[in-house]
Structures are given as structure tokens and as C-alpha cells.
């Protein structure tokens, strides 16, 4: 950190990030089974946002506005939220392999969402995201209790996460098999692997506020997260209210994960891999690491969604398949590099 880093440079970086994000959203809206030129995308936006009145094919305009754009925005939010959750969990638990998927938080959120959707828990009072949030918290509670009993070590946390995700995935399968009809079961299994096909504008109304709120809370705690570098006792001696920071950040991470899971299913490896990529690019300071992870996560997820739509012509792959195809090898790489840390 240097004091004389010009404000201009920071503003420039923020602007460049915004441009990158908008460009990625544009490409996300343009690429698909029928490619639509970027200028049509721009004109559609102008029509919708400022009533510019360009003459466009209603079909193109409809595809871009009603399907692809909302989808790309939710993908971006989802990527950011998962990447931020990954940074939080990795820093607080001081564990290079932590992320909401591996720690079973996503699995818990799935179980929560499925319980609401199929079993009708809460009799319509609880919405899917709230069910997912409750499920995520229960899963995190279960996994942390297990990790504490197993000795709190790096390996203990991961093994507890494995146990947690297995348990909650099994619960989800049990509920789906027992209570859902064939049609529901098919739809839910597809959703569980991560799927943005059902995303529409109302989802944007949840995804954007959650991702922005998460980013702001994380940035507010950037220095506190830095202070955890040498562990919780060291953080406490640097004046960090350790317990409060834990509670707030774990809750934010659960809110972000649960909201995204309730919309697009549980998507693995983004929360694990993106923070490591960001660390390689901008270093370990959270003031930079958090926004960089959010941006890279957003762009990666838009790209993964585009790939999932075009890789097999005429068919949409679950996005979780794409992220796992990239994520699993990256996971292996981190594992082999961090051998000494385990």
C-alpha cells in the first residue's frame, strides 16, 4: 500500500472495471444460439432505457431484453457473490480450500430451497431465498460444529465440509425422490446443477441488490479481513472485534450464497478458484482483492453461461458443469501447491 497512489489511478481502475463488466454483459447478450450483432444489443438497450425508437426486429429485441440481458446480469451477480463468499471464507477460516460449495453451504441452501418448493414448509410465508438462507445457516452450523470437534485444522474443516455437503445433498435427493412428481424432479435436478435458463427480470431485482450489498459489507471489513492474516488472536490484538466480524461476514456470505442458489442452483468452484486468480493478479490485500474477485467472478460467470449455451448446438448445459470443468483442475492445482499448508 502506498499513500501517494493517485486518486486518479484508482478512479481509472474503477472505470476500467466498469467498462469491462459492461462489455462482458454486452457480449453475454449478443452471443447465443442466434448471434445478434453488438450494435443491435446497444440499440435495444437504447430503446428500452431511453425510448430511442430504433427500428429493430421484435424477435431480436425480445431475445436480448427478455432473456439474455437479465440472464447475463444475474450471472454476473452470481459470480461476484460466490467469489466474495469464497474470499471471506478463505480469509476468516485461513483455509485456501474454503468456499461455499466445498463447505456444504450451497448444499444446505439447496435443501432449504427444495424443502420450501416441494414440501411447502412455511405454508407460503417463506420464499425460496429465505428457505435457502435458513438451509445455508443450518449447514454452516453443522459443518463448523463438526470441524471444531475434529480439531479445527485445515484438513478438519474440509472434511467436515465434505460430510456436510454429502448429508445435505442426500437430504435434497431424498426430498425430491419422495415428494416430487416426475416433471418436478427433472426440473429440480437440472436446477441443482446450476442453471440460468429460468432467469427473468424479477430475479435481477434480487440478485443486484444482494451482490452490491455483499460487496459493500465486504469492503467495509477489508482492513479487518487483512488483520486475520496471522490468525484470530493476532486480529484481536490489532483491535478487531473478532466475534462480531465473524458473525457479520459469515451471515453475509450465507445471504449471498443462499440468494444465488435459490435463483440458479448450486454452482461449484467459482467461490474457490476466483479468489486465487484474483490474488495472483492483485495480491492479498482485501481492499483490492475483494473488488477484483467480484469483477473476475462476474466476468467468468457470464463467460461460463455463454459457453453453456453454445458448446452443444441446440442444447443448454447446466452452468455448474462448465464451472466444474474449469474449477476441478484448478482445485487440483491449488491442492498440490498448498500441500505444505495442509
Amino acid at each position: 500500500m502506498t499513500a501517494d497512489r493517485p486518486i486518479l489511478l484508482l478512479a481509472g481502475a474503477a472505470f476500467a472495471a466498469l467498462v469491462l463488466l459492461v462489455a462482458a454483459l454486452g457480449v453475454g447478450a449478443a452471443v447465443g444460439e442466434t448471434a445478434i450483432p453488438l450494435d443491435i444489443v446497444a440499440k435495444t438497450l437504447a430503446n428500452r432505457l431511453w425510448q430511442a425508437g430504433y427500428a429493430l426486429e421484435p424477435i431480436d429485441e425480445g431475445i436480448i431484453w427478455n432473456y439474455r440481458l437479465s440472464r447475463a446480469i444475474v450471472a454476473a451477480c452470481c459470480g461476484s457473490a460466490l467469489a466474495l463468499s469464497g474470499v471471506i471464507l478463505q480469509s476468516l477460516l485461513r483455509n485456501a480450500l474454503a468456499d461455499p460449495y466445498i463447505l456444504g453451504i450451497s448444499a444446505g441452501a439447496s435443501t432449504g430451497a427444495v424443502s420450501i418448493a416441494i414440501l411447502g414448509f412455511g405454508a407460503g410465508l417463506l420464499t425460496l431465498p429465505i428457505g435457502a438462507f435458513i438451509g445455508a445457516l443450518i449447514a454452516f452450523g453443522f459443518v463448523s460444529a463438526l470441524a471444531v470437534r475434529a480439531g479445527r485444522g485445515t484438513g478438519a474443516i474440509i472434511l467436515a465440509g465434505v460430510a456436510g455437503s454429502q448429508l445435505f445433498n442426500a437430504l435434497t435427493s431424498f426430498i425430491v425422490t419422495k415428494a416430487a412428481n416426475a416433471e418436478q424432479a427433472r426440473a429440480i435436478m437440472f436446477w441443482l446443477l446450476g442453471n440460468l435458463s429460468g432467469v427473468r427480470w424479477p430475479d435481477v431485482g434480487l440478485a443486484v441488490p444482494v451482490a452490491l450489498f455483499g460487496l459493500l459489507v465486504c469492503l467495509w471489513h477489508a482492513r479487518a479481513l487483512d488483520a486475520f492474516t496471522f490468525g484470530t488472536e493476532s486480529a484481536a490484538s490489532l483491535g478487531i472485534p473478532v466475534r462480531r466480524v465473524y458473525v457479520v461476514l459469515i451471515a453475509v456470505s450465507a445471504v449471498m450464497t443462499a440468494s444465488m442458489v435459490s435463483m440458479v442452483g448450486s454452482i461449484g468452484f467459482v467461490g474457490l478458484v476466483i479468489p486465487h486468480v484474483a490474488r495472483m493478479l492483485v495480491g492479498v490485500r482485501h481492499g483490492l482483492l475483494l473488488p477484483a474477485s467480484a469483477l473476475i467472478g462476474a466476468i467468468f460467470m457470464i463467460a461460463a453461461d455463454v459457453l453453456s449455451r453454445i458448446i452443444i448446438p441446440g442444447q443448454v448445459l447446466p452452468i455448474g458443469v462448465i464451472t466444474a470443468l474449469f474449477g476441478a483442475p484448478a482445485f487440483a492445482l491449488i491442492l498440490s501447491q498448498r500441500r505444505s499448508a495442509l
Partner: peptide
């Protein structure tokens, strides 16, 4: 007190300023 983070020597010392900096106080 140990860490596996790739921080520099200077960054480790910079952490000492934490109690004097609020969330929005610039370095």
C-alpha cells in the same frame, strides 16, 4: 504467529496500523 498468505515483510508491518484506521480512513 504464522501465515500461508503471500504477503510481503512490509505488508506484515503495515497491519500494525490497523487500530488507527477506520473502514474509510485512507492510508
Amino acid at each position: 504467529a504464522e501465515t500461508t498468505e503471500r504477503i510481503t515483510a512490509r505488508q506484515a508491518v503495515e497491519l500494525g496500523r490497523t487500530p488507527h484506521l477506520g473502514a474509510l480512513t485512507p492510508w
